[in-house]
Simulated assay, not measured.
Amino acid sequence: MKAIVCEEFGSVENLFLGERPDPIPDSNQVLIKVEACGVSFPDLLILQNKYQFQPSLPYSPGGEAAGQIVEVGKEVKNFQKGDRVLALCRWGGFAEKVVVDAERVFKIPNAISYVMAASSIYSYSTSYHALKDRGELKKGETLLVLGGSGAIGSAAIELGKAMGAKVIAAASSDEKLAFCKEKGADELINYGSEDLKNKIKELTDGKGVDVVLDPVGGNFTEAALRGTAWKGRYLIVGFANGEIPKIPMNLPLLKGCAIVGVFWGNFSKKEVELNLQNMDRLNQWFLEGKLKGESIQEYHLSEAKKAILALQERSKFKKGVVRIS
């Protein structure tokens, strides 16, 4: 089968279009004919050998693969050939076929396209779990989203509005903030040119924000934490900045606030039923038009390197999707 291949960690330049053996599913796995695969920040971190999980070399990137099941392991009971699914496979999705553990596979409605599934379900599922289950965001509260132009951040902006919150989006440039405004943000903070903590206080009349969603990490975490309200909830989603911040622990004490970890991957394994309920709600909101989904830039399989380069250079606000067929 055709696949994007990496034989050495490090640079995007190490990727090439090549041939790989067709994968064979184990008894608890399914084989999927991939139609589309989302491009996400973990793809880049894995390639750079900076992610918490690493594949054996050689491997193919791509962790959000959507397609049709063509073979089912003998112990798999809840899927059959022909099912339309999204597979959260961590890697392997930039290929014509991928095998995935059945517990990491989710059915998608006929009305949701493979491109929509591959581009939006992971980021929206992560953000919805963060806001609903971990942050307990309530109608009328104020939500601050760091990295608002990224996939997780832009999903959180839409979801925050759908859940009835006031949304403040923060990003590093006016161009990125214009995109956040299009996604529905009520207020904007340019943390490249404005003091983040002081601007939060200004926009909230000194109260601070009730919930912070942070997929970025780095230098802005402490400033945003200082901008939380009494009993605020600070959601740690990731470290796209590349730096894991060190937080003065007197801050949550003085503010009576909670710093909460968000790991959707483990949540979806350990709380299967609640995760499926969340995904059903998201699918319904997509079908109703309450959520628009990610803005998409499509690439052919042969252009996958270009898709990851765009992610690395943060040159686009659109979610990259690699079309396989």
Rank of each mutant, 00 (worst) to 15 (best):
M116Q: 11
S154A: 05
T142G: 10
E288Q: 15
K132F: 00
P109Y: 09
E8K: 15
S11K: 15
I296E: 03
G93R: 01
L196F: 05
L144E: 02
S302D: 15
S40A: 10
S125A: 15
F79T: 02
V12E: 13
C37K: 00
L57I: 11
N250Q: 08
A65Q: 04
M249D: 00
G148D: 02
S56Y: 03
V34W: 01
R233A: 07
Y128W: 14
R281H: 09
S120C: 08
S295I: 09
L251P: 03
L251R: 09
N28L: 01
G150P: 05
V321D: 00
L301W: 06
I189G: 01
F263W: 08
S123T: 14
I244N: 06
R20A: 13
P42C: 09
I46N: 01
F16A: 10
A171Y: 02
M1C: 02
E187Y: 13
V105N: 03
N14S: 12
L196V: 01
A170H: 03
P21A: 14
G242H: 11
K176C: 03
S295V: 10
P25H: 02
F267K: 04
P42I: 06
L47F: 12
I236V: 15
G320S: 04
G164N: 09
S172V: 05
L274C: 02
L57E: 06
D195M: 04
D280E: 15
P42T: 12
E7N: 09
K183M: 12
E182T: 06
L309E: 14
V5W: 00
V211R: 02
K138Y: 10
K207D: 07
E75C: 09
E273H: 11
L276H: 08
G217R: 07
G184A: 02
K270H: 00
L287R: 12
E19C: 06
S154T: 07
L15R: 05
G160R: 07
A156K: 12
L15G: 00
G192H: 04
I69H: 02
I236R: 05
Q54E: 08
L254Y: 14
F9G: 03
K181H: 07
K50G: 06
L131V: 11
M116K: 15
L159M: 05
G242M: 07
D22F: 11
E35A: 11
L203C: 05
L177K: 01
P55G: 05
G293E: 08
E243R: 14
G217S: 11
L137Y: 10
N278K: 15
K2P: 10
Y124A: 04
A310G: 10
I112Y: 04
K138F: 13
G93H: 02
A162V: 10
P23A: 06
L251N: 09
K81T: 08
K176G: 00
